[in-house]
Design a protein around this nucleic acid. Structure first.
Length: 219
DNA sequence: GAATAGATTGTCT
DNA sequence: GACAATCTATTCT
């Protein structure tokens, strides 16, 4: 059964959540298709949402950059091994959280990291959570750690069902191929040859995409 | 605008 | 004990 939409005021969110079948597909396709979709978190504090403009695919045992590299299975990575359409949230660098979307069948530890959003709802709440009073909206969810901070996501949300839970991804129009760029992934230099694979997808021209201008495609 | 350093702790060896 | 799918301030050009 398909879940109901979290309660949000913005008209921009007048779309249905993506169903399980969206996530039950090859990871690179899910990654590319996530661009333009709306990530929403309805919490007790309120609702916050943003349009996905940057993602990275992590492809299981054979991908040395993935947490599941070599089939590594620990309490932290357990969610990656679970069924598709769930959130894999982990803690890094002693201070940041990152959200992923689990893809493919249970037992196949692949996922897509959400790296950046363009805020579309709950901007004031995002500012509060980020401690970011002044400055442009497009800085609020720029980079995976910032996304979690702005949406109020922590490991409590690890394993949360994206189809029925308070954290969902709503459908939205597809980003045209001409606006999509692919590059190597960020921060995975330790992964040897796998570090060079073009598994980062971004919306060309979006200010919210992380990294320097040359990397974001902003003119 | 670009490069660099420092912060800070869970997770795995 | 080493390192990590990062962010921000600072210090340059």
């Amino acid at each position: 059964m398909r879940g109901t939409r979290p309660p949000c005021d913005s008209d921009v969110l007048n779309e249905r959540p993506l169903g399980r079948s969206f996530y039950f597909r090859p990871t690179l396709r899910v990654a590319r298709d996530l661009l333009g979709k709306i990530l929403v978190h309805a919490s007790a504090e309120g609702c916050a949402a943003g349009r996905i403009v940057e993602v990275e695919a992590y492809r299981g045992p054979s991908d040395r950059a993935a947490h599941s590299a070599g089939g590594r299975r620990t309490p932290r990575t357990e969610t990656m091994y679970g069924p598709p359409g769930h959130a894999y949230v982990y803690f890094v660098y002693g201070m940041h959280h990152c959200v992923n979307v689990v893809t493919r069948a249970a037992g196949v530890p692949e996922a897509v990291l959400i790296r950046a959003l363009e805020p579309v709802a709950g901007v004031e709440l995002m500012r509060l959570r980020r401690g970011f009073a002044a400055g442009p909206d497009w800085r609020l969810c720029r980079g995976p750690g910032s996304v979690c901070r702005a949406l109020g996501l922590t490991r409590v949300h690890d394993g949360s069902d994206l189809v029925t839970g308070p954290l969902q991804i709503l459908d939205a129009s597809r980003v045209a191929a001409a606006r999509v760029a692919r590059t190597p992934r960020i921060g995975v230099d330790y992964a040897g040859a796998h570090a060079a694979l073009p598994w980062r997808f971004l919306v060309v021209g979006s200010r919210a995409v992380s990294g320097t201008r040359a990397r974001t495609g902003v003119a």
